[in-house]
Write a protein that binds this DNA or RNA. Sequence first.
DNA 1: TTGAAGTTTACATAATTGTTACAATTCACT
DNA 2: AGTGAATTGTAACAATTATGTAAACTTCAA
Lengths: 212, 212
Amino acid sequence: MEKPVSSSVIKRLPRYYRYLGELITLGIERISSKELSQRMGITASQIRQDLNCFGGFGQQGYGYNVEYLYGEIAKILGLNFKYKAILVGVGNIGHALTRNTNFEKRGFNLVGIFDTDPQKIGMKVQDLTVLDYKEVKSFIEAEAPTMAILSVPRAVANQVANELYDLGIKAFLNFSYAELSKKEDTVLENIHLGDSLMRLCYKISEKNKNEV
Amino acid sequence: MEKPVSSSVIKRLPRYYRYLGELITLGIERISSKELSQRMGITASQIRQDLNCFGGFGQQGYGYNVEYLYGEIAKILGLNFKYKAILVGVGNIGHALTRNTNFEKRGFNLVGIFDTDPQKIGMKVQDLTVLDYKEVKSFIEAEAPTMAILSVPRAVANQVANELYDLGIKAFLNFSYAELSKKEDTVLENIHLGDSLMRLCYKISEKNKNEV
DNA sequence: TTGAAGTTTACATAATTGTTACAATTCACT
DNA sequence: AGTGAATTGTAACAATTATGTAAACTTCAA
């Protein structure tokens, strides 16, 4: 029986992956937890402990092989799966996401984009055509996508999420400012831009307070 | 001497704020930690303890006044300040952010947007005109913005951040996939879309593993 | 006016997360 | 081959974070 890995560790994995990717482009072949810790600004022992949750990827007295570790983390994250994803809401954000995101490298394959606005339907974005949201049911039945990206207005976010849930989609990446009511058997990641802005605002205010 | 509030608490504040906003639109005037905890899916005790970090906003035997608490959290976050912000990199994401983000409600005021691409310079986005990044120095000297949003390509992110830092900007909201090297006297929030995708990918893979 | 129900506050306890320390192992060099 | 320096893996410890709970206060109804 495998022990479940704490979510704190999972949160850090993509960051490790990012750093290792950079090391590869720099041509660095091996790295010690100590050096990586200096680059990343966390303790070496945390790195070792995190990685050890998934098995011993390093070699004592040697360190970690960058390319190997990179590949192992990719496996852990499941990036090789290329889950089918759809995007609902081709507004400013949805449009930008479609054109700007390298889904392939992060485990997904964007296969359909949807909107309700007649002006947008039929429009080409990258190599995809905006489909009528009315067709989402038949599309999902045919393609069976795993994940949906929600970039719809706040007011309809929960409704759309429920509809997609009923059609079998159990994984969501939510960009809308709404708080999605999380169901038991779904997985969800939120990107709340507004929250980040407010946290930044707090930090700035706090810093000013301490300096004056 | 005020004790510093833990960053775990700060991370949750915007979420409280969001929920309280929703309660206001629902016309709810008062709420107990118990009911809020049920809506938010966290323990009542945590809500009470979080809020008590900043003083007693509730009334025993009554609960919390929604509107008052909403206002108090806004004060704590510093949302009343309207710090001046600039945005660098009017690509897909930068463009979408400019048009789609309600900065005013989150403590900021977007006063300038910049790019290096001659095709983009002079373009109107909302009520702002894209300025030449070459002018950023004189602009900052004149306007003294507090914060910069970085939506530039990964390759130049650190360079741009350093330039802005030297010009006096000490707060950054980073959208680029790069890892900004954090300086002592700066505050930084990252929005790494790629990381969220990878975490979601992990969760999906994990879920599948457990179900099969 | 009084008491019961409800609620915050404040604090004690539990759980989680991160750090330290060190034994076991490997590499590099002579 | 042998030795020392480097480095991981891991167990014990410390710190942080979350939860549970008793005491004090408020409201409200009889």
